[in-house]
Design a protein around this nucleic acid. Structure first.
Length: 190
DNA sequence: CGGGCGATGGCA
DNA sequence: GCCATCGCCCGA
């Protein structure tokens, strides 16, 4: 949370802060693609090394995930919201939207970045066009955890609080306007 | 807020 | 073939 993602696209460089993620905890997680060790060409990236990029499509949108554990431990995080810092103009052209609607959802943010296929799937962070800067980044005032979005009626893991977001950051998906911190965006060092 | 759209993969 | 799905948009 608060770390910087940098994407070198054909149209130019973009950078954004991660403000919302969801964890998917592998074989034991009844909502995860690797539940009960499920493995196929589609989700092979889950079994890769830490920093591997997993992309799957949902209703025609690309979902961006980073693998977090060692090889053969199929856990990762879904990126659900990012706050643009660089390349906002490119994102606007890619999305045909502006403001918080640019990147406040998992499918929206990939569209904004211009990720429209699975080219990056099975590739590694920091070795290609997509980089993650694990340096200091921005510090959230508060991180909230909540049940994950869109995983209804899928067993005992459905309601586990594995969604995390920067409290008040307006690029968090489905965040009511009332809860938005429009001054600091939820950061300590904004 | 509710409905419609939609591609892909996994399995029969 | 058929079904299910980790979203988004638009129009009330």
């Amino acid at each position: 949370m608060g770390k910087k993602m940098i994407y070198q696209s054909q149209k130019g460089e973009m950078a954004a802060l991660i403000v919302e993620t969801e964890a998917y905890l592998g074989q034991k997680d009844s909502t995860a693609h690797a539940y009960r060790g499920h493995r196929s060409p589609a989700n092979e990236a889950l079994y890769g090394p830490p920093g591997m990029i997993y992309i799957f499509s949902l209703r025609g949108r690309m979902m961006l995930n980073f693998i977090t554990q060692q090889r053969e431990v199929p856990q990762g995080i879904l990126i659900r919201g990012i706050e643009p810092i660089i390349g906002k103009e490119i994102m606007k052209k890619n999305r045909l939207k502006h403001g918080f609607e640019l990147t406040n959802g998992p499918g929206k943010l990939t569209e904004a970045l211009g990720i429209v296929d699975r080219t990056l799937n099975l590739t590694l962070l920091n070795q290609g066009s997509l980089k993650l800067d694990l340096g200091k980044g921005y510090r959230p005032q508060k991180i909230i955890s909540a049940p994950r979005v869109g995983v209804s009626r899928r067993g005992s893991w459905t309601d586990k609080p594995l969604r995390f977001f920067v409290a008040g950051n307006p690029y968090v998906s489905q965040l009511p306007k009332q809860q938005m911190d429009l001054i600091n965006h939820g950061w300590q060092n904004f």
